[in-house]
Design a protein around this nucleic acid. Sequence first.
DNA 1: GTTGTGACTTTTT
DNA 2: GAAAAAGCCACAA
Length: 122
Amino acid sequence: MTSSGPPTDPTPGFHERVLALVARIPEGRVMTYGQLALLAGNPGAARQAGFVLNSLVGGSDLPWQRVINAQGRVSTHKVGFGDMQERLLMAEGVEFRDGRCDLATRQWWPDEDRAAPPAPLL
DNA sequence: GTTGTGACTTTTT
DNA sequence: GAAAAAGCCACAA
């Protein structure tokens, strides 16, 4: 093997990293762009997190719909997806209130993958 | 290699 | 609560 380059890339690419996180989002949960960027190792690259998702839409099976902004609101409205995302989340059990979802209870973190309580919480 | 833009975030007014 | 500005990083032309 030898290879000159590093045996394993510490940063498998922002693109791959974000997809890996999105793919881990359980049903009924959501994540924010800032979170993906932060967990991906690039705090502040929240914009890029969204740009990356836009590249997979239509060619990926990832639950990109579970990714929303820090305001608990979907951003796909300006992109041209309409209320499709909001509707998809509702179908998963996410309650939307006035066009916003309760991040306080629906925001998911990778450490919760062990015990994701679909509990009513409310 | 440079420029421009964007599914964002955060703070301030 | 809503609006505006600045900051941030990655991808496309």
